[in-house]
Each structure stands twice: as C-alpha cells, then as structure tokens.
Amino acid sequence: MRHLLDTSDLSREEAELVLDVTQQMADAVTGREVPKLPALRGRTVVNLFYEDSTRTRTSFETAAKRLSADVVNFAAKTSSVNKGESLRDTALTLQAMGADAVVIRHPAAGAPQRLTEWLDGAVLNAGDGTHAHPTQALLDAYTMRRRLGGVEGRTVAIVGDILHSRVARSNVWLLSKLGANVRLVGPPTLLPKDIDGWPVEIGYDLDASLKGADAVMMLRVQRERQNAAFFPTANEYARLYGLDERRLALLPDHAIVMHPGPMNRGMEIAATVADSPRATITEQVTNGVWVRMAVLYLLLTNGETR
C-alpha cells in the first residue's frame, strides 16, 4: 500500500489490517501518561486542503501529531479549478520540501490520483469531489466493529444524497467487501444512474429499509439541492427521508445511528435522534483519529518510502 485513494483499492485483508491496527492505536494511546507515540518522528505530513473542513483536517493533524510526525498545514485557498496555482506546481513544491505524506482534500474527483503522478510521498485522500473519502468509510466500519461486534453479515442502510456523496461510495465498496449487506435509500434523483452493478440493494422507501437494519447512516443533504430540482422542498425531503423518532423506533433495539457530519438537524436527522444514545456521531469523530493514525502508520512504515 503506497497510497490510500479509495477503499476500492484495498483487499479485504488490507482493510481488516487497517481496522486491527486502528484498535491497536486506540489501545496504545488510551490512558497513557504521554498520549504520543514516536513512530513517525522526523517524518513530515502535509495537510493540503482545498476545501474548508476543519473537522477532517484537525483529525488528520491530531493523528499525525500523536505519531510524532511534523505537520504542515498548506494553505490552499485556491486551486487551478478557480485559477490559483496549478495542482501540479503545488505538488512539485511539496516534493521539493520533502513531504513524506500528503493528505489532500479537493473538490475535484481524482485530484489525489493525479497527485500521485507528481509526488514521491504517500498520498492520502481526505475526500475528493463526489468520488471517495476512504478514511471516513474506515472509521465508520471501525465504529460498527466496536458497537455491533463486527461488519460481516450486518445490514447497513445508507440514506440520502448518494449521488453527491463520497462517503457513501467509499462505504459501499468497503462495507460490502467486509461482508455487510448494504442498502442505499434515497429519492431516485439523488441516486446515480446505472448502479445495477453495485453490491447493494436500492430502495426508495425509508421505513421499509430501516426494518432489520443494524446500522443506519444518514448523509448530509444540502438544502440548495432543491434549487436544482433534486427534491421539491426541504420539508418534503425531511418527511420522506429524514430520520425522526418514529422511524428510529422502526429499527431493532441494538441498531446504531451514524452520521459523517456536519449534520443538518431537522433535515436528514431530527435533533432528538442526533442526541440519542444510539447515535454514534461523536464516537465516530474519536474513532477517526485512531483510523487516521493507523493509515499514516501503515503508509509511512511500509519500507517503500524514502
């Protein structure tokens, strides 16, 4: 594993290894006098964020620092998409600065893959356009492992704007690879065309899809999508695809409610549901740090980097 671009690149064994190491990272740091490990001392991790995402950037930064890496936050307010420095020139700059790993968040799908052509260091995709967000999927799988005892054989409903969701895509590949039954639920306008080949069940009726689900993953839906006719109104969306208390009661007792954040309370998820003990939303944030530690460790100690 040289880079982490998407979960589709991982074999099942590799994915399991990441989750195992995630557990080990959590155990290694939790309750210690010095919550810091020296594994990546002297290595430089660059956070290259072309989209504002304080939560993801902070999570990667914390993970890298817990492993004693030097972290550089490269301010990339503009990209070649909006006439700033070209991604290639930025990559050459980071290369010249000796970055061992670059964590990239970019509005253009495929930007991390392009970056691997211009850089020697490891590239970690922290979200590219509507393509992939592998560490989010890994932390979701890890959360299920912790809360449900595993992923294999569990049924997971992913609900909402699948079309524009990199989280949904990366989760579909990862969870199905780990043996889960994945259901995609949303209005037909927000499901991609031609996904008959995906290893999922597709549904348009949320109530029906919640029955027997072990986990339900609510995706953020932007209100502005109503302007592009993806759905008539925010109210109608919430009525058809929002997770409220009535729907929560349709889930089995052990089922968990997940959300990658940031949430639109009252839109895809009711405030009372988001705050219920069955919601794993803050736990997901905590687990994100362990997953990112595991990924950084695995990528930077594989004997392939400089």
């Binding site: 799908a109 495929g110 356009g129 992939a132 990199r166 065309k193 031609d194 996904i195």
Partner: peptide
C-alpha cells in the same frame, strides 16, 4: 458534466 453518464461515472463520482 465531465464524462459519459453511466456505470463508470457513478463509480468515479464525476458528473455525467
């Protein structure tokens, strides 16, 4: 739009 709309664009997350 960035590429043909179909199974590949659905996977790649490029607008079809």
């Amino acid at each position: 739009a960035q590429m043909n709309e179909g199974a590949v664009s659905a996977e790649l997350g490029l607008p079809g």
